[in-house]
């Protein structure tokens, strides 16, 4: 990829393209309105439900508002315990995943070795093969290791789930690093490690960050492995949510929990905005 394409996007281009049909940033405004109504509206509806005690068709707003369901939810110890467990799990899994996958990604992206392509493609199996077919085998492995119902067991099963994104995305990022800069550093007398630390890593960082965020969020909301290995002692937030949404007559519980979950999501999104700009993840995923 040439340096030109990494240079900052041209502000005027699309505006100019679009000005032919109008005046100001009409497209942006249109896109904003479209997204606000399709992305935000459903979430606002969930938000209102969280504060509604009675809301029956055809009233535009709930007949009775109240915080009753919040009180009930927030007083539950299992909700807080599950939130803590989920955050701990997500941090641990993401950190471990980075530790083992980033070196591998570097090797896949920059080195030549036997079976490279086959091994690279094989990571697809982790996400594409339906897990239920492997239940008994995986359960047996974990039972024999005494990992069922343990934090470490859930970490291990969830770690496996993260490998594909954490290898594939950073591999492409390491690959698209500008070699001329690395050579220049080498010529200036830098050791290979220094080159990696000061040149290669900073250039691939935005894409790696994108992979990290995808991994973190994906792990936070993972349920299949968490249930198979974690039950009955390790209860994560989404497992709790499923029982509150699927098995409940009262939909407000689900709404309250959803709102509670958007807090960590929003923090992650704010962080993501900084690194997921135009090129970041984009460069990593090919193109």
């Amino acid at each position: 990829m040439s340096l030109l394409s990494i240079s900052p996007p041209t502000p005027s281009l699309l505006t100019r393209l679009l000005r032919r049909t109008g005046g100001a940033d009409w497209f942006g405004l249109l896109a904003f309105i479209f997204l606000a109504s399709t992305i935000i509206l459903p979430l606002v509806v969930v938000g209102i439900w969280a504060f509604a005690e009675v809301w029956r068709y055809p009233a535009v707003l709930p007949q009775r508002f109240g915080l009753g369901f919040w009180g009930e939810m927030l007083a539950r110890r299992d909700v807080w315990a599950a939130l803590t467990t989920s955050l701990e799990l997500s941090f641990t899994v993401t950190a471990l995943s980075m530790l083992i996958c980033l070196p591998a990604a570097y090797a896949f992206g920059r080195m030549e070795f036997p079976f490279r392509n086959t091994l690279f493609l094989s990571f697809l199996t982790l996400r594409a093969f339906p897990k239920f077919g492997l239940l008994i085998v995986i359960a047996t492995i974990f039972l024999n290791l005494g990992l069922v119902g343990t934090f470490a067991g859930v970490v291990l099963i969830q770690l496996v789930d993260t490998l594909m994104y954490m290898v594939w995305i950073p591999a492409a990022a390491f690959q698209s690093v500008d070699r001329r800069l690395e050579e220049a550093a080498q010529d200036a007398g830098a050791t290979p490690l220094q080159v990696f630390w000061h040149v290669t890593l900073p250039q691939s960082l935005p894409t790696i960050a994108a992979a990290v965020i995808l991994t973190f969020v994906g792990t936070f909301y993972e349920t299949e492995g968490a249930w198979l290995i974690g039950a009955p002692t390790v209860t994560t937030m989404p497992i709790l949510m499923i029982s509150f949404i699927n098995n409940q007559l009262v939909i407000q519980y689900g709404a309250v929990l959803s709102l509670m979950l958007w807090v960590p999501s929003f923090v992650a999104l704010m962080f993501a905005r900084r690194v997921l700009g135009g090129d970041a993840i984009a460069r990593g995923l090919g193109g």
């Binding site: 239940l135 359960a139 047996t140 039972l143 024999n144 069922v148």
Partner: peptide, 12 residues
């Protein structure tokens, strides 16, 4: 399913 696997491997 897990309990069935546990029965075979004599685990909890």
């Amino acid at each position: 399913e897990r309990a069935l696997a546990a029965l075979a491997s004599k685990t909890d």
